[in-house]
Computed example of a mutant assay.
Amino acid sequence: MKVSLLRAVGVATAAYGVAVAAAPGLLARPSGLAGDGGRTAPEVRTSLRPLAWRDAVSGLAMALAPDGPALRTAAYVRIAADFGDAVLLGATLPGRARRVGAVAVSVGWGALSVAGLLADGQKQEARKGPTRPRGAGPRRG
């Protein structure tokens, strides 16, 4: 697991979540959920804030969870949220360009977390060096 990548994704996600909770228009405008003049209706702000807090809290969990199972679990939650966003926003946002953009952003962030989880296995294999079959006898140099 590449802890530094997971922590960076967590910090960025937490910061974005706090920002959107404070100013839902940051998400509403590019998503096509803002009205005329870029104003975000009260009901849209109310709907976006819980999503923003979900991002803030799940990002904070990734940033602060102890390395190991806790960090993996936080990353899995974040990945599920990102891929869930891709499915739901990709199916429901107004306008094809906005749907495609939301899917790309959501899948991109989820993919960063997946990469952070998978990096360990690749890195560990590189450290081990070449493997020899059992019973192959002593290595000749």
Rank of each mutant, 00 (worst) to 15 (best):
residue 112 L to R: 12
residue 126 A to F: 09
residue 9 V to Q: 13
residue 133 P to G: 15
residue 35 G to Y: 06
residue 58 S to P: 03
residue 28 A to L: 08
residue 31 S to R: 10
residue 22 A to M: 01
residue 29 R to W: 10
residue 13 T to Q: 08
residue 141 G to P: 05
residue 57 V to L: 15
residue 55 D to L: 12
residue 135 G to C: 07
residue 133 P to Q: 04
residue 23 A to C: 10
residue 99 R to P: 13
residue 2 K to N: 13
residue 65 A to S: 14
residue 16 Y to E: 00
residue 7 R to V: 14
residue 105 V to Q: 11
residue 30 P to C: 11
residue 16 Y to M: 00
residue 82 D to R: 02
residue 57 V to F: 15
residue 85 D to Q: 14
residue 137 G to D: 05
residue 43 E to F: 12
residue 134 R to S: 06
residue 1 M to T: 09
residue 107 V to K: 02
residue 75 A to D: 05
residue 32 G to L: 10
residue 89 L to P: 03
residue 11 V to P: 00
residue 121 G to A: 15
residue 65 A to N: 02
residue 72 R to D: 01
residue 90 G to C: 11
residue 58 S to T: 13
residue 130 P to N: 02
residue 95 G to M: 06
residue 138 P to G: 01
residue 11 V to G: 06
residue 54 R to L: 07
residue 113 S to N: 15
residue 73 T to S: 12
residue 112 L to I: 06
residue 12 A to T: 07
residue 100 V to D: 02
residue 102 A to R: 14
residue 88 L to T: 14
residue 50 P to I: 04
residue 107 V to W: 03
residue 40 T to S: 00
residue 93 L to W: 07
residue 13 T to A: 03
residue 121 G to C: 07
residue 20 V to S: 09
residue 95 G to C: 06
residue 64 L to P: 04
residue 42 P to F: 11
residue 36 D to C: 00
residue 72 R to C: 04
residue 111 A to W: 14
residue 25 G to H: 06
residue 137 G to P: 11
residue 35 G to M: 04
residue 111 A to I: 15
residue 132 R to Y: 13
residue 95 G to H: 09
residue 136 A to L: 10
residue 51 L to C: 01
residue 40 T to H: 01
residue 94 P to L: 06
residue 48 L to Y: 05
residue 108 G to L: 09
residue 87 V to I: 07
residue 105 V to G: 05
residue 2 K to D: 15
residue 60 L to F: 13
residue 95 G to R: 09
residue 87 V to Q: 03
residue 126 A to C: 08
residue 55 D to K: 11
residue 35 G to K: 03
residue 85 D to A: 15
residue 140 R to D: 05
residue 20 V to I: 12
residue 27 L to C: 03
residue 71 L to D: 09
residue 99 R to M: 13
residue 24 P to A: 03
residue 100 V to G: 02
residue 134 R to F: 05
residue 81 A to C: 13
residue 53 W to C: 02
residue 79 I to H: 04
residue 28 A to I: 08
residue 118 L to V: 14
residue 132 R to C: 06
residue 18 V to Q: 09
residue 87 V to Y: 00
residue 112 L to Y: 12
residue 71 L to S: 08
residue 119 A to C: 02
residue 92 T to M: 00
residue 137 G to Q: 05
residue 97 A to D: 06
residue 28 A to V: 10
residue 91 A to E: 04
residue 85 D to T: 13
residue 59 G to M: 05
residue 27 L to V: 07
residue 98 R to I: 12
residue 135 G to H: 09
residue 140 R to A: 08
residue 117 L to Q: 05
residue 70 A to S: 11
residue 26 L to Q: 10
residue 30 P to L: 13
residue 89 L to C: 00
residue 65 A to V: 03
residue 60 L to H: 09
residue 107 V to P: 00
residue 73 T to V: 11
residue 137 G to H: 07
residue 17 G to T: 12
residue 51 L to Y: 01
residue 106 S to K: 05
residue 54 R to W: 11
residue 39 R to S: 13
residue 40 T to C: 01
residue 13 T to W: 04
residue 127 R to P: 00
residue 67 D to K: 11
residue 91 A to L: 12
residue 78 R to Q: 15
residue 53 W to I: 11
residue 10 G to F: 07
residue 100 V to M: 02
residue 141 G to A: 07
residue 121 G to T: 10
residue 96 R to L: 14
residue 107 V to M: 00
residue 123 K to L: 09
residue 87 V to P: 03
residue 5 L to D: 05
residue 21 A to I: 04
residue 62 M to A: 05
residue 114 V to Q: 06
residue 80 A to I: 02
residue 137 G to N: 03
residue 8 A to N: 03
residue 76 Y to P: 06
residue 112 L to C: 15
